[in-house]
Amino acid sequence: MEKIIIHKEQVKILTDSCEKAYPYEVCGAVLGHDDMILNVRILGNSEEESSSRVYFSISPMDIYKIEKEAEREGTELIGFFHSHPECEAVPSAEDIKHMIPGMISIIVGISKTGRYPERPLFSEEIRGYVRESIQSGIKELIIMGD
């Protein structure tokens, strides 16, 4: 796998959800076929109430439900996304530990520039990664619009 293809509308869903959750992390699932993202599903953050605002987790049962929904829609669960508020869009050690071989991992670095009282002005950076097999390292993917 070398690239991910994502449509403008899906990019907007991604960045909107990251801005809405800011300064907290948001996460979700990406559905599609192979390297083509056709749908983005926001899953919130089940760590919200208990942990720090720079940590997320998705409940396994929620993922399973989404897989089944995707099947009905004729797509597949091909990966996950989460945001890094005020951090670079590179995977942390914790992120890497949870990367399933073959699954796409999209990270959105989101930063609010400018000091109060300026209104929020976000800048985002979207990057994609994959671990091709359990022995291999993390590889960055090229992100292409369609």
Partner: peptide, 14 residues
């Protein structure tokens, strides 16, 4: 019995 994924992570502490 279900074999499911756990997806978690976080921003690196900077």
């Amino acid at each position: 019995v279900l074999l499911l994924p756990a997806i978690a992570g976080g921003a690196p502490v900077e």
